[in-house]
């Protein structure tokens, strides 16, 4: 575990302007209960003949992956690792609908073939002709962090020099209705596609450094507070969304802290879905690069952070069972 792990480039598709950081200068709060992603212009990113079988999530994933790769110091990734809570939901849903309509005959192979969770990672590998490590994690709201942990560990121990890590979740209108019932803690249901190039190479184009990735299962607030108290992390980016069911576990944790951090949020801008922690990661990395924090991201505007932004700690939970902690650090070439 001696190598360092940097974020070299990123790209996002969400409810904000796609493949752009435009939201950073014009952050506005979401109001709708369900907002679909803004589709990216895939011209130049996806060959039309290859696009014909791709569902929305696949087009978005390829668009963010190719954009991140084009903007990076990496030509061919050593690994492609994806997090997706629900996988290719649109195709799975269509297959289930066809089973209701046609019974068990005349079902479409391309829907099944591209319904599995790992369709995304392997499609990117097929397009890039990348024979490297290829894995997919599907674990509720910590799918992205599971993929990140895998890449982080392998870069740190020198197994790989870089990785394309992504998190992708689509929510169809029907699934949004179901999710309102199954996930009453979600305030604004959205969709996510984030791709990042991680690399062990120190180069001036690096956005930030990843210094820690952790997954916890059913942790006590005291346990998490104990970890934070040791480090005095002064900027916390939390998955709060204004819903009591969702926010109470974060508040319980904050009460146990021995210091008073500035707390930030992102779900008011990007909404909720199983992959939204990837947007927290993207937002924190952007803040570290730009060295400023858009006002709507403060949980409490009276506690604006004024110092140099050196570290951001991202905390997310899903159902208060699956927790993740990511630490990002400002990148300085030849510094630190």
């Amino acid at each position: 575990m001696t190598a360092r792990c940097f974020v070299n480039s990123m790209a996002q598709v969400s409810c904000r302007q796609p493949l752009s950081d435009e939201w950073f200068d014009n952050p506005c709060a979401l109001t709708a209960a369900y907002t679909r992603a803004q589709e990216p212009d895939t011209k130049g990113l996806i060959v039309p003949s290859e696009a014909r079988r791709m569902s929305k999530i696949l087009k978005r994933a390829v668009a963010t992956s190719i954009t991140a790769l084009n903007n990076s110091c990496v030509e061919q990734p050593d690994a492609i690792i994806t997090g997706t809570g629900m996988g290719c939901m649109e195709n799975s849903e269509k297959f289930l609908v066809d089973m209701c309509r046609y019974g068990e005959n005349c079902l479409k192979p391309s829907l099944f073939m591209q319904s599995t969770h790992n369709t995304i990672s392997s499609l990117i590998a097929i397009i890039l002709k990348c024979h490297g490590y290829n894995n997919t994690y599907s674990h509720k709201g910590i799918s992205f962090e599971s993929a990140l942990l895998d890449a982080f560990v392998q870069i740190k121990n020198g197994n790989i020099g870089n990785a394309l890590v992504g998190a992708h979740d689509e929510v169809t209108p029907f699934m949004a209705l179901v999710m309102k019932r199954t996930h009453p803690e979600y305030t604004n249901i959205t969709e996510t596609s984030v791709s990042a190039i991680l690399s062990s190479t120190e180069t001036d184009s690096n956005i930030c450094e990843i210094t820690d990735v952790n997954l916890f299962h059913n942790p006590e607030p005291e346990f998490l507070a104990g970890i934070l108290n040791k480090t005095d992390d002064s900027l916390l980016l939390l998955g709060v969304n204004g819903n009591q069911l969702n926010d109470t576990p974060y508040m319980s944790l904050l009460e146990k802290l021995s210091y008073s951090p500035s707390t930030l949020r992102y779900k008011n801008i990007f909404g909720d879905n199983f992959s939204s922690p990837a947007l927290a990661f993207y937002a924190a990395a952007t803040i570290l690069k730009q060295q400023r924090i858009p006002a709507p991201l403060y949980c409490d505007t009276s506690k604006n952070y004024t110092g140099k932004i050196n570290n951001i700690t991202i905390l997310n939970h899903c159902d208060n069972t699956a927790w993740s902690l990511i630490r990002l650090k400002k990148f300085d070439l030849c510094g630190s």
Partner: peptide, 9 residues
Amino acid sequence: SIDALELIV
């Protein structure tokens, strides 16, 4: 080959 299967459907 998948297109061939789609044509069968």
